[in-house]
Design a binder for these strands. Structure first.
Length: 637
DNA sequence: GCCGTTTTCGGCCCGACTGTTTTCAGTCG
């Protein structure tokens, strides 16, 4: 059965249609109509199925008879004749071309029709050969900027945002779980497991049920979205997806799993430190296990891995794993049961499926404990002092998503959000929160329909009414007030004072000097009405660098004034990043993790923010929204 | 292509910024 098209997906198709129409040079107002329709369609709360069945699409603002017919066609067939025709006419690469910052539809049009540039690669070549000079409006500076933009585009192409990587990993997991007989266990490793904000490829560690069988390889060949199997050996299978993303499967024996998981989780720097520790103790560590150096010599005389796979079924490994034993005895020869003995963990039987992490921790902790270290969470494994801290028993008690009690930064239909206050509150309540703050844009941000004083008053009234109607979650009134180019705020203190919570953010004047931007943020910190500085560095991953700002000064100002800094959990921002958040916390600044959700679904981006916080070594007490409601209210007062 | 209504077609969001120009076009948000 065909997959049913959702409103969101239909909206995406309309957007694509609009993009192609734009490149082709269609009527701009017609294009805008498509874009408008896409936007309103993507934010309808009703199911597309229902809207189509009841022929009520034209009730949606921006959708008339024509677009209603197009949307019905998309719902019925998954595409539209118009779109297919445009796709035949214009190369697909043009859609990539307009993803390059600085190239919009007009320039893409020029490039394609005058220079036959039909993709990013072509553009790169045309820039190198200086052919773009032939085009009207393309001067030397633009050429230089485009060169940089292409370089950034390409480097970004190599890495995907963590939420995209999560999606892919989930899809692969679903595919694997259709044939659970193929493996004993699998789990993600690499930078995805360390929860880095950008991920280059996906590493999956697996214990195959039968290393000799080619069943796994054959099953992987049926993965949806597969471009090709790049390599397939006994210990590694590499897939290339249509999106260009590589997926590495590392295949290990059961007893190799703990060491392999540490090795493939990395980081490289962390692993180097661990291996140094091993050496000091007269052992060595690699992806197959932890070995005494003495036996290593023996091993090199014999044949390698086969030897390891044979051992490991004796009971010693279980003893090693038992935390009740405390420190491993120095005299314990890890390889006594056979050559190459290691700290393997026997399968728990039911741990066979899913990206389980419980089992992973206990598997790995044996090795850490052996070195006299506390277990080190994957998010900390960057050689940023975690090994030293683990030795002293001073690792942080990391914050967890389950510690989060509310969200401070979200938008509703009052500005550029897709849902009403009530919808967002109910969705937040479903996440188990105690509170949320409604923080729409302020008046100067016209592009996002920023609130006038009047609209803000209306919103306050609605929040007042909802407080009685919605139980189980407290709705706080707030605003994301613009820090204006001159450093002032978009609303007077008198107005801000009436709100429960104020976030101040920069959305304009990005090109001011370092001193000016720093001054704007410091001034915002000093305003007693401001509780949180929103997305302090203003970066958009892969699209826009952070604006110039001296964060150390901002952090000091935040520390002095008790202002919180935001960890914006939107996967395109993740701003502050792990390093700056850690720096801020070390200066005593509290961090507010918030999603900047414009949609109910985006409220769950909170997990990504929590990941950043964990990478920043944050504990509960460093995080404003880990506070219970009463403590929060006291803080805000 | 949609909307509103001046019921039959004209107007459709807009300011900042950059780089190209010599008064504006393209992009971005």
């Amino acid at each position: 059965m065909e997959k049913e098209i959702t409103a969101r997906e239909a909206a995406d198709i309309l957007s694509e249609l609009a993009d192609l129409m734009e490149i082709k040079g269609d009527n701009r107002y017609r294009i805008r109509a498509y874009q408008n329709a896409a936007r309103s369609l993507s934010s309808v709360s009703e199911e597309l199925k229902v809207l189509v069945a009841e022929d009520r699409l034209t009730e949606i603002k921006g959708i008339g008879e024509g677009l209603s017919a197009t949307i019905k066609e998309i719902f019925a067939t998954g595409t539209a004749d118009q779109l297919e025709e445009l796709k035949r006419e214009l190369p697909a690469g043009l859609l990539d071309l307009i993803e390059v910052p600085g190239v919009g539809p007009k320039r893409a049009h020029q490039l394609y029709y005058q220079l036959e540039v039909s993709g990013v690669e072509d553009l790169k070549k045309a820039l190198q050969e200086k052919r773009v000079r032939e085009l009207e409006g393309f001067g030397p500076k633009l050429a230089k900027n485009l060169k940089e933009a292409v370089a950034r585009y390409e480097s970004f192409q190599e890495r995907m945002k963590i939420n995209e990587a999560d999606c892919l990993a989930e899809r692969i997991g679903e595919h694997l779980e259709r044939k659970p007989e193929l493996y004993l266990k699998y789990t993600t490793a690499g930078s995805l497991r360390r929860r880095k904000e950008l991920v280059k490829d996906i590493d999956i560690l697996m214990i195959p049920a039968d290393p000799e069988s080619d069943g796994l390889e054959n099953h992987l060949r049926e993965l949806e979205g597969l471009h090709k199997v790049e390599s397939a050996g006994s210990s590694k299978i590499t897939l290339v997806l249509e999106s260009g993303v590589k997926v590495d499967f590392r295949l290990v024996a059961e007893d190799e799993f703990p060491a392999a998981l540490i090795y493939f989780t990395g980081s490289k720097e962390h692993n180097v430190k661990l291996r140094q520790l091993a050496k000091e103790k007269g052992y060595f560590l690699n992806e197959y296990g932890l070995f005494s150096r003495e036996n290593r010599e023996n091993r090199e005389d014999s044949e390698g891995r086969e030897d390891f796979a044979e051992r490991g079924d004796s009971g010693e490994n279980e003893d090693l794993k038992d935390p009740e034993d405390g420190e491993y005895r120095e005299d314990l020869d890890l390889s006594e049961s056979s050559r190459g003995g290691n700290l393997g963990k026997k399968s728990e039987g039911d741990a066979a499926s899913g990206f389980s992490s419980e089992g992973d921790e206990s598997a790995e902790s044996g090795i850490y404990h052996f070195f006299g270290l506390d277990f080190i969470e994957p998010e900390l494994r960057e050689d940023r002092g975690e090994i030293e801290a683990a030795r002293k028993g001073e690792l942080p008690d990391l914050i967890d998503f389950s510690d989060i009690r509310g969200d401070f930064h979200l938008h509703t239909r009052y500005s550029d959000g897709a849902y009403g206050i009530e919808d967002m509150a109910v969705a937040a309540r479903e996440l188990g929160y105690e509170y949320l703050a409604v923080t729409d844009h302020s008046k100067s941000l016209r592009i996002a329909s920023g609130l006038s004083e009047e609209r803000l008053r209306e919103q306050l009234e609605e929040i007042g009414r909802l407080k009685d109607r919605i139980s189980g979650i407290r709705i706080l009134s707030g605003i994301e007030v613009d820090i204006l180019p001159d450093g002032g705020l978009d609303f007077s203190d008198d107005i801000l004072r009436r709100l429960d919570l104020v976030i101040a953010s920069i959305h304009s004047g990005f090109n001011q000097s370092r001193e000016e931007n720093t001054g704007r943020l410091v001034e915002a910190c000093r305003n007693p009405e401001v509780d949180i500085i929103g997305h302090p560095r203003g970066r958009l991953l892969g699209r826009r660098d952070a604006y110039r700002v001296e964060m150390a000064e901002v952090i000091e100002a935040a520390a002095e004034t008790g202002t919180c800094l935001e960890i914006n959990a939107s996967p395109s921002r993740l701003d502050l990043d792990d390093l700056l958040a850690r720096q801020a916390a070390s200066r005593g600044v509290r961090l507010a993790i918030s999603t900047d959700a414009h949609h109910t679904g985006e409220l769950s981006d909170m997990r990504l923010g929590a990941d950043v916080a964990r990478r920043a070594w944050l504990e509960k007490q460093n995080v404003l929204n880990a506070l219970p409601l009463d403590d929060l209210l006291e803080f805000l007062a």
